[in-house]
Amino acid sequence: MSSQTASPAATRRHRSANEKHAHAITRRNTRNGLLFIAPNFLGFIFLTLIPVIALFFIAFSRWSAFGMPQFNGLTNWKRLGGDKVFWAAFGNTFYYSLVHIPLTLIVAFLLAILLNSKLKGRTFFRTVAFFPYITSIVAAAQVWSMLFDARSGVINQFLRLFTSHVPGWLGSTQWAMVAVIIVATWREAGYYMILLLAGLQTIPHTLYEAAELDGANAWQRFWHVTVPSMRPTLFFVMVTLTIGSFKILDLTLVMTDGGPGTSTLVLAQYIYRVAFEQGDFGYSSTVSLVLFAICMIVTLIQFYYNRSKED
């Protein structure tokens, strides 16, 4: 009797002990997991998340970094509307992005396709194309500044062979941004080329064979096989390229410092200027919120477009 009843009870006990044990394992795993991500997560919370949340308050305040920010309602936002330097920076940022994004994408894609073909010494050229990305930006900008020198630079000496109306490059408000875009494209195309190359190599060769059997020409194979198969890679490249372009700062800072005049002043540099040179952290936060909103909106559009194409 006792043994008969004891047996199920023991099983139950055993089971509950087992469950307890399983719970303990889960708890321990959770705890260890949390501990493992804690260094990064705490860093993220304190160094990124909280400052970003605080930004939404600081943008509506007057703050010189001393004491507490003083809430001032929409004053900063009204100032934004009439601030000529802000609108110049806003326009320059869009000019840079709208030219730089398609240009870099096209150059990177062409390079990737070229270096994916059976070209002699392609490993060498792949490395060479990646060089600019790992070169120190300050050193590269210095060399480019010399190449762009209006009087004695190599570029203008070459152009003088064809025309006497050579551009003033970094010394001219019309051409300075063009020069910056050229250097930016030179610098980043190699990086995106590697990403696109990786994408190209995942496309099964059979797709091309099938398309060829169906009588598709090279352009059709590119447009109907390569591009759709590359959509995930292209999407990733587009998003990072777009955000990177709107955030452009280092290149204009070392090449032109925003000049001549405000012809290459971009939003990120204006944010830096207002905060650290003019000590107006409230207004600077307002401008950063605008930049944040631009990046957000453009990325959301890309997401929706990508999703609609996938469906």
Binding site: V85, S172, T173, D257, G258, G259, P260, G261, S263, L265
Partner: peptide, 12 residues
């Protein structure tokens, strides 16, 4: 400072 670079480069 912006005015200085604009004038000295003769952009303006």
């Amino acid at each position: 400072k912006d005015a200085n670079s604009a004038i000295m480069t003769k952009s303006s």
